[in-house]
Design a protein around this nucleic acid. Structure first.
Lengths: 243, 243
DNA sequence: TAAGCTGAACGTACGTTGTATAGTCAGGTG
DNA sequence: CACCTGACTATACAACGTACGTTCAGCTTA
């Protein structure tokens, strides 16, 4: 009933995942926060976000469902931990090239980490809890923007925009098949409508390929970075708005 | 058992919502697709996405839960219909100003429609089913890009990037309170970590205000449009990438 | 008017989910 | 040896989406 429950406190950043104790024990390795989170990530990567249930995860770990709750407060916290594990895959150590080059490398690595776990990424952006790896990523990005000469206010704007674009990219348009497999052929992106009512779409339709055509992320990142470069070069003339 | 069930077919775009029949009948207006969808949208706007359950919706409509299934195939389709209703609020009729001005107005109106229903918008981007209003919005945006002179391939890239940024914006970082109200004060964006470990974040922290500081969407839109303008003016010199 | 059809609303029930609660049991310490 | 502690299990519950079969009002046709 107390706030200081037996569960490891989530406000202590050093215990977000921690190291597997793995005492040389009986054959089945003892449950641990780290093992649970890694198994959960594997399960989501393999079978999709909807397949992540406490029961399924427990079965995979050959353990009773409730055993998980000795290491994780609830499913919500579990997902937080999974997200931070994913963000740990981002390479934040780029230091060569000018600020634009470094920024591009950083955001690309971020994008790749999310793309590698795009099922989890779909649940990611909704969250506001940020773990140590997420914090590290943010620190590097903001530092880069400050070094480039942006004001603190603009650096935070630019960070969030890059963050939103990258995280949002994974969210959008990953095909989620309807449960009714009979309507599977309906999962095309656009309902059949006479082409004369949608001339522009008809023109570009050969190039749509859904939101995730290869290179599309880079295209948008190019736009954002070009915008940042322009703003940096001539802050006042960069406005595209009339006013 | 047949594909041609009694439920109105979803592949006929004219029946996505349709008009309320509202035959001058008994006092409680008869259930209809339109009434259900509007009630659902009101419920989500007021009480949040998680409050949208078939039971709660039926209660609000003073009807048994299963009555809804005479008008809507399942909850998934209901959300599709809600999304299209929301997209109907986008003003797609802007025709004054140059292409950048029109594009800005269009995307801003899109953004405002999503922001007005940001709870629903959180469920939006995951979907690929697109209704007539969504199609109209897409048609206008792509047409604008084509008129501006972009190639079909680039127009589709640009459309998706604008689409992803705008939709993603609503997804990201809307504070979702944890169910455990005892940890409410933990919903701050960053766990307490010594400032010397995160110097850049410490510097910008007064300006963070979460992802949704007023004007932040416009900042990112500025970047994207500036990037597009540059690409339009000098397509080959616009690349920020080394190669 | 009578008979029958049709489609909308209902009541009940099932399987799945997250998780509270209480019990069990091994391992370390007095 | 007694005892405590902390990890795992067993059972249970409420809420969810929705399949199934029934009821019933109102229209059509005779």
């Amino acid at each position: 009933m107390n706030d200081q429950s037996s569960v490891p406190g989530r406000s202590d950043p050093t215990t977000w995942v921690g190291v597997d104790p793995s005492k040389d024990h009986t054959r089945p390795p003892p449950l641990s926060r780290s093992r649970i989170v890694r198994a959960a990530l594997g399960l989501v990567d393999e079978k999709g976000l909807a397949a992540l249930t406490m029961r399924a995860l427990a079965t995979e770990l050959e353990v009773s469902p409730m055993a998980l709750y000795n290491h994780v407060r609830d499913k919500d916290e579990l997902v937080d931990l999974m997200v931070d594990l994913m963000l740990g895959e981002v390479d934040t150590s780029v230091t060569e090239g000018d600020w634009l080059t470094q920024l591009r490398a950083l955001v690309c690595s971020y994008h790749q980490a999310l793309a590698a776990h795009h099922e989890l990424a779909r649940a990611y952006s909704v969250r506001v809890r940020i773990g140590p790896y997420g914090l590290l990523l943010m620190e590097r990005t903001v530092a880069l923007l400050l070094e480039a000469g942006f004001s603190p206010s603009e650096a935070s704007d630019a960070f969030f925009v890059l963050f939103i674009y990258t995280a949002g990219f994974q969210q959008i348009g990953h095909i989620v098949p309807r449960r009714d497999s009979a309507t599977r052929e309906e999962t095309g992106y656009f309902p059949p409508l006479p082409p004369q009512q949608i001339p522009a779409i008809t023109v570009v339709s050969p190039h749509l390929d859904g939101p995730h055509r290869p290179g599309r992320f880079d295209y948008g990142l190019d736009l954002l970075l070009a915008g940042l470069r322009v703003k940096m070069a001539a802050p006042e003339a960069a406005a595209t708005a009339p006013q």
